[in-house]
C-alpha cells in the first residue's frame, strides 16, 4: 500500500487521533498493514513482543490458558482498540495469547522501530505514552472490577 494511504489509516485510528503531523510521519515509518483470518493468532504467550497492533476491523480475544480449563478469555478488543503493550518494557515477551475471533485487519507497528523513534525524540515518546497510559489505566480498572467479581454472590 502507498505510504499516503497508510498515513491516512494511521491518522484515522483512534489511538493516534490528533497526532502532530511531524510525529505522524515518524510513526508511519514503523507501520504496515496486516490481516489475520478467523482462528489465527496475532501472537502467543511467551513469544517476542515485537509489534503494537492497531485494530481496524474484527474482534480479538485476549486469552490465558489454564491447566484443565483450556483458553480463558479475559478481554475482547475490536475496531479502534489496540492489542499488545508488552513491547514497551523488557523482556519484550507477550504475556497472553491474542486470538482473532473473526477476520482481523490491523496496522502492525514495528516495536523496535517505534521504541527507537520514541527514544530519539522524547516529544514523540511522551505523546505515545500519554496515549498508552489511559488505555492501560482503563484496563487496570476493568481488571479490578473483574477481580472483585461484582456479579458473584454477596457475602452471607
Amino acid at each position: 500500500m502507498a505510504v499516503e494511504g497508510l498515513e491516512r489509516i494511521v491518522r484515522e485510528h483512534p489511538f493516534f487521533a490528533g497526532l502532530d503531523e511531524s510525529f505522524l510521519e515518524l510513526v508511519v515509518g514503523c507501520a504496515r498493514n496486516v490481516r489475520f483470518e478467523a482462528g489465527k493468532y496475532l501472537f502467543r504467550e511467551g513469544g517476542p513482543a515485537d509489534q503494537l497492533y492497531l485494530v481496524r476491523e474484527g474482534r480479538v480475544a485476549l486469552e490465558i490458558a489454564a491447566p484443565g480449563a483450556g483458553a480463558i478469555t479475559f478481554q475482547t478488543v475490536a475496531e479502534g482498540d489496540i492489542v499488545g503493550v508488552s513491547w514497551l518494557f523488557p523482556p519484550y515477551r507477550w504475556q497472553y495469547d491474542a486470538h482473532a475471533l473473526e477476520r482481523v485487519r490491523a496496522i502492525a507497528m514495528d516495536a523496535t522501530c517505534l521504541r527507537n523513534k520514541c527514544d530519539a525524540d522524547p516529544g514523540l515518546g511522551y505523546d505515545v505514552m500519554k496515549r498508552l497510559v489511559p488505555i492501560l489505566y482503563q484496563r487496570l480498572q476493568a481488571t479490578r472490577l473483574q477481580v472483585l467479581d461484582v456479579y458473584g454472590k454477596p457475602a452471607a
Binding site: 480475544a61 479475559f74 478481554q75 476493568a142 473483574q146
Partner: peptide, 23 residues
C-alpha cells in the same frame, strides 16, 4: 452483551460492561 470471563467456545464480548459504551 459482555461477560467477565469465558471459555474459548464463547465468541461474544469479554470485559466489563462499561467497555461497551463506545460501541
Amino acid at each position: 452483551v459482555t461477560v467477565d470471563h469465558a471459555a474459548d467456545d464463547w465468541h461474544g464480548h469479554v470485559g466489563v460492561v462499561t467497555t461497551l459504551l463506545p460501541r
